[in-house]
Design a protein around this nucleic acid. Sequence first.
RNA 1: GGUCGGAUGGCCGAGUGGCUAGGCAGUGGUCUGCAAAACCAUCUACACCGGUUCGAAUCCGGUUCCGACCUCCA
Length: 488
Amino acid sequence: MQDLKIHNTLSGNKELFTSINHESVTMYVCGPTVYGEPHLGHARPAITFDILFRYLKHLGYKVRYVRNITDVGHLLNDADEGADKIGEKAKALQIEPMEVAHFYTKKYHESMYKLNVDTPSIEPLASGHIIEQIEMIKKIIENGFAYEVNGSVYFDVVKYNQTNNYGILSRRKIEDLMDNSRDLDGQSDKKNSVDFALWKKASTEHIMRWPSPWGDGFPGWHLECSAMSCKYLGDEFDIHGGGMDLVFPHHEAEIAQCCAANKKPAAKYWMHNNMITIGGQKMGKSLGNFITLDEFFNGTHEKLDQAYHPMVIRFFILQAHYRSTIDFSNDALQAAEKGLLRLFNGIKALNNLKSSGTSSVDISLLKSKCDNAMNDDLNTPIVLSHLFDAVKVINATHESKQSLSSSDIEILKKLFNKYVISIFGLQPIEKQSTDSELNNVMKLILEIRSNAKERKNWEMADKIRDGLNKLNIEIKDTKDGSNWDYTK
RNA sequence: GGUCGGAUGGCCGAGUGGCUAGGCAGUGGUCUGCAAAACCAUCUACACCGGUUCGAAUCCGGUUCCGACCUCCA
């Protein structure tokens, strides 16, 4: 097994990864709240941890990857009259809350499929684990870290902090938190402003509700992940992932809940992907730069010059390290599109390469550079830079400026297959039509043009070329004949 | 206001105390009937001011600016 280093938010450092159970890895990642269209912000963690999931399997681990679907709705705000998002949407549309959740779950799955994000081992629904959540609350109350007031149950952060460290993950001090947190509601049932809800009493008009020992209500917003990770991965598991915005309070609360219930802090490694910005600004509904994945795929948002293939989005995300912010713009995406094309052109050339007796380039060095970069906290941009170096070698070999032995060509083929296809999950963009009739017609047209060129009938050849261009079809002449593709 | 992170060439984005990151664009070239496509070569960097050092874009201090979290968020 190679030495994989990953950045652990708990320590703030890169650490050597060792799994609790040698042969297997258990990981949990916070999934989407399904109350709206899947957007760019959903793509980054999904892709980041998809890469980790694939890579761990590649290293030989048996991986159990749990990514939840939050379909019970989070509270809209800290105030007590908390409506939840899914319930609100359902009311607005006059449908069952579960219709909302199901509709957007389907949308999320469709987008993930297009982005070639592998489906996790288990994708549990929060609504399907109300019983587990209630049991966990009972345990926390039994252990003295939660209290019930008027049908709601709150986590006693101050008491917890006397024997544990609330702030261990986000490096916050409880005193600062208490100073800073605004008490919006003077009538709050909470003992302290830093306390958070484990169970909320449902008002009569609140439509998402379940019975509990404390009356009808719904679970608090941090509990589901604790309950479900514990159920499927145990009290202690290897990796917990999610977006950086979840570090506080969500993941901090998860650790507190797990310690309060099980006396164990859940995960050994906490990994967080950074955010996506658009034109240097955080993406948000209120900022008017909120772009859904479908809008990217179809090019229908006003800020987009063109449609972007899901693979371009995926490739672009991999061109940045997961802990850096990444800025989306038309220029950057168009650059990524061309880069991706270059990468796959290289693979195509690799598959048609003629071998020599010896190699003029050290291919095994190149391979180990890729492996080292990947093992260094999943440095996908560095791996890609080495793969582009390889593309340069492949093209040079194609033009007989370099040489590669047959065994090195095999190593390269395996290397590209491993990283590009298996781990990065990239696929060539097939803009070519699958319409066989059209393909046959195009074949005939290209033949006619080729004949015209042989007879030096440039007028005819150019008329065909220019005419097709107006129909958004581009002819590409190569040494081995002509082919075609759609322009954008 | 508190806590944390960042500032790299026209754009995106790595990395590092001395040795070309990479992609895109630009420029030059190869190919081509001419183009396009493809391929090759190549230019423009490390926010500002001090300090440490033989040497700093990289370490330290300060300044400015930007962002994240603290409130729903991926």
